[in-house]
């Protein structure tokens, strides 16, 4: 988790990719326990920790590495267990699975664009 040498974009993309990857595992766990009686679904808490970053961006400021200090995706249990009585709702889990997969791929795309900017700079703008 060394943030000092990386650019802030790479640091944030890495954190968000970690969160998406963990969220995928949480969703997979919820789906695997679709028929487990008394199961409390697992969720990932990440976006709420980025409040400082969001506030800075909205005021036209810049994001500093200190804002990302201590930010990490965390697993949480839904308590009490889902009101429906048993397990997690399969349809909602599949929907968030699809959303999460697209978000993960979008993050990878952003990261790879960032790298292509860097490589353009390294090549002095030549192709």
């Amino acid at each position: 988790m060394s943030i000092s040498t990386d650019s802030i974009t790479v640091s944030m993309a890495r954190l968000a990719l970690d969160a998406a990857s963990m969220r995928h595992q949480a969703i997979a766990n919820n789906i695997a326990n679709a028929n487990t009686a008394g199961y409390a679904p697992v969720r990932v808490d990440f976006e709420s920790q980025m409040d400082a970053v969001r506030a800075a961006l909205q005021q036209g400021g810049t994001v500093t590495p200190s804002m990302l200090q201590g930010v990490a995706p965390v697993l949480r249990r839904d308590v009490p267990p889902a009101a429906a009585g048993q397990g997690a709702a399969l349809d909602m889990e599949i929907a968030s699975l699809a959303q999460n997969t697209v978000q993960y791929q979008a993050l990878l795309k952003a990261l790879s664009k960032h790298m292509s900017i860097l490589s353009a700079a390294v090549a002095e703008g030549k192709r």
């Binding site: 998406a20 995928h24 969703i27 679709a34 028929n35 599949i94 997969t101 993960y104």
Partner: peptide
């Protein structure tokens, strides 16, 4: 439910390959 698990696994695969 089995099919849903397969969907989740395929999603993991496409994420890893990407």
């Amino acid at each position: 439910a089995y099919e849903a698990n397969v969907v989740a696994m395929n999603a993991a695969k496409s994420m890893a390959l990407k």
